[in-house]
Simulated scan of single mutants.
Amino acid sequence: MNDRNKARVLFFSYLAVLIATENVYSFMLFNSFLAYAALEISYLLPLFRPKSKGEWPASLLVYLLFLLMSPNVFYIVTDLIHLNFFSFRYTAGLVVREWWNFSLLVTGVLLAIFYYVTMVRVIRNLLAGSRWSGIILFLFVILQSVGIFIGRFLRFHSVHLFTEPFALLREFLNAITRDALIFISLITVLQLLIIWIFATTPKENAHE
């Protein structure tokens, strides 16, 4: 089974479990859908690589849509903060409900990391042969971090870039502080670490 089909099976299985069971992480339904949608859009990128001037408008639209949706993938990793819904006082005894919800949330995060790694591999294949591939991928990672900051702390969604672009930009510029830059840097490092550990291809390893 290739990675795309594996992602599909895992996505629909995870949603089915969330819908069919009692849990406090119902928001993972929407977040997981956005992450999976971004992955599926990434698979369209090679199909919309422009080969003539007439193809540029459609290509730009798809690539822009992907850039707007893509932060939703790694955003789920930050959902780990919602483990604070439970006290996890393990010294007082085992509470199965806590660990069931723990398992559900961590599963969603692991799936998001899988989507992210798969998405990065698609981008690397798209940029194969370009002398600027490393720089473009690094800029992409930084944009992910900025998008995650905007979504997590300013509570804007991707659609607000179309409906409230100036308000979003104003809020973002006002929110740029030392702590904001530290957060963006930390998320960037986490992404680069995951790319280095999981998204390195066997061919790249062979050159080392």
Rank of each mutant, 00 (worst) to 15 (best):
F27Q: 09
T200K: 12
S130A: 09
S185Y: 10
V122G: 03
R4I: 15
L111E: 10
V24N: 14
A7Q: 02
L105I: 05
L64R: 11
Y90M: 11
V96N: 02
F30A: 14
N174C: 07
F12S: 12
P50T: 01
M1P: 09
V24R: 14
V189E: 01
L29Y: 04
F153G: 02
Y115S: 10
L154F: 07
R4T: 15
N72G: 07
A58P: 09
Y90H: 08
W196I: 02
D79A: 06
L169S: 11
L192V: 12
T78K: 05
F156V: 04
S103W: 10
F140V: 01
V9W: 09
S52L: 02
R170D: 09
V146F: 13
L181K: 00
F183E: 01
F48G: 04
S87C: 02
L169W: 09
N31W: 07
F88G: 01
R170I: 04
I113N: 03
S145Y: 06
L61R: 09
T163P: 07
S133A: 15
G54H: 07
F33C: 06
P46H: 08
R124G: 10
L143E: 05
S130T: 09
L139T: 10
A167Q: 13
L186Y: 08
Q191W: 02
F149Q: 05
F149S: 02
A175V: 04
A180V: 06
Y25E: 01
R4Q: 14
R155W: 08
L143K: 03
E55M: 11
T188D: 00
D3M: 10
A112R: 04
V141T: 13
V146L: 15
L10G: 03
I187Q: 07
M28C: 08
L192N: 00
P71D: 03
R178H: 08
I142L: 14
I148M: 10
A112V: 06
H207L: 15
G54S: 12
S133N: 11
I182Q: 04
I41C: 05
V141I: 15
V9L: 11
Y43L: 12
M28T: 11
T107Q: 08
N5D: 14
L39M: 13
L192H: 01
N2Q: 04
F140D: 08
V17C: 09
P202I: 13
V95C: 09
N23V: 07
L44Y: 13
